[in-house]
Amino acid sequence: MPSRLVEKFMTTELITCHRGDKLRDVAALFAAKPIGAVPVVKKDNRLCGIISKIDLLGFFLPEYLELFSNIDFIQDFSTLQSCNLDVLDSNLLLATDVMSYEPPTITLDTPLLKCAALMQKKGVELLCVIDEENHLLGVISSTDIARAFFGKYLG
């Protein structure tokens, strides 16, 4: 059985953004393509962070909601002042305002099962593949990994 390595299953057609990009432009990337997260890179393609779709959606919601053990009691969130659907319209919000620094990363020779373990452990849907100098080579999503492992059940 061939070893299942990241190299074979990762995506190399990258959708990335830069630290100084406006958040509204990052949001547009999510609207255009079914992606879970966008890596943030420097000019020389070194990885510096990642922005997930859920993090970006969280921008609309008040931070204090995290303090409630359940939010079923709020039926209509639009009555809350801090729920601001227009917040991303601003030109002042940049990728750095929401990106997570030091995202979990892997290398080309990382076994796929380890990727699956990392995703489960860190609660992420996308892992960045980097070389020794932190250059972004590709990304691997839970969909890619599912294809690798579940492919044998295809008709």
Partner: peptide, 13 residues
């Protein structure tokens, strides 16, 4: 302001 948009009974699980 109307506060009907939430239902406190939902908290008593």
């Amino acid at each position: 302001i109307t506060t009907d948009s939430f239902d406190e009974k939902k908290y008593l699980k």
